[in-house]
Design a protein around this nucleic acid. Structure first.
Lengths: 156, 156
DNA sequence: TATTGTTATACTCTATAACTATA
DNA sequence: TATAGTTATAGAGTATAACAATA
């Protein structure tokens, strides 16, 4: 176990708790900044994430998008409805399996996605706060986290 | 893998974009894991964040909580309604300024918060994936990020 | 029978605007 | 007038359950 430490309550927990606290702080800051940026483009965070998941060179079935977003199929229906309503993606019936509807990113969607990444890399908190070496280090740590903790199963 | 928009000087952008991508991946994983954990306690993420913001030894005005959560006062009303309904916090009128209602964490709230932190430090993705030195390093980087990028003002 | 996507429903989160009660 | 909190309202995200079309 861990070394029960000096002051009655566990000191080891304080350090871990501090890490958790910091992560949620960064997470919260990123969330709000992200919301502000995507709002400038007239879309919502889930719509932006969906756009990010889609492949410019391939028609992606809605089911795959649901898996990528870790959410239910019925949720994707609503998000895609809004994306299609503003002309960023298009539903396209699959000729092989007529149950599936695949999604293609429109030209407007591609343009918006490019501009979005541009803003994020300039205004996202971590990038702004750290110098080149620190960013490289953070990237390595995050890569390890992602590799280890694969995917949290979302629902079901 | 394809790099569609590679016009000219965009090599640096790939590295930054990768950092952004990793951050959102970690953020997404944390979000879902967090949701799963707090659901086990019968509460929602905003309720848990509110509980985290409150001070066990002090009665916190609702306005302060709204500031801490970076959200509107009317949002806090709803969240506190639910926290109070399950007996985790209590509204208490301030004797000095009778407009304010201050929030105190109940015994049940304290217990739940302790158990919540316990689960988070054991099951949150970053902590699980990294060893001690790496966690310390990550903590330092996140601290710098938080210190630099103070608070994004969400609503006004 | 199993799968893909939709619809119906319900709940939560969120902000804006209008309201109250204090100050 | 200004501030703390509520209420009313609206839109979005989310999942569950029931459904249609297809496999």
């Amino acid at each position: 176990m861990k070394a029960p430490a000096q002051h009655g309550s566990a000191a080891w927990l304080d350090e871990e708790a501090e890490l958790i606290q910091l992560l949620f702080d960064v997470l919260g800051t990123m969330k709000h900044r992200f919301h502000a940026i995507v709002s400038d483009f007239g879309i919502t965070p889930p719509m932006a994430h969906a756009l990010r998941q889609l492949d410019p060179g391939r028609a992606v079935p809605m089911r795959d998008l649901a898996l990528g977003l870790h959410c239910d199929a019925s949720t994707v229906t609503g998000i895609v409805d809004r994306l299609e309503a503003v002309g960023l993606v298009q539903r396209r019936p699959d000729p092989v399996d007529r149950r599936v509807k695949a999604l293609v990113v429109t030209k407007a969607g591609l343009v918006l996605r490019g501009q979005l990444v541009e803003r994020l890399v300039h205004e996202a908190p971590p990038v702004a706060a750290l110098d080149h070496d620190e960013r490289r280090h953070l990237r390595a740590l995050l890569a390890k986290i992602v590799a280890t903790a694969g995917g949290g199963s979302p629902a079901r």
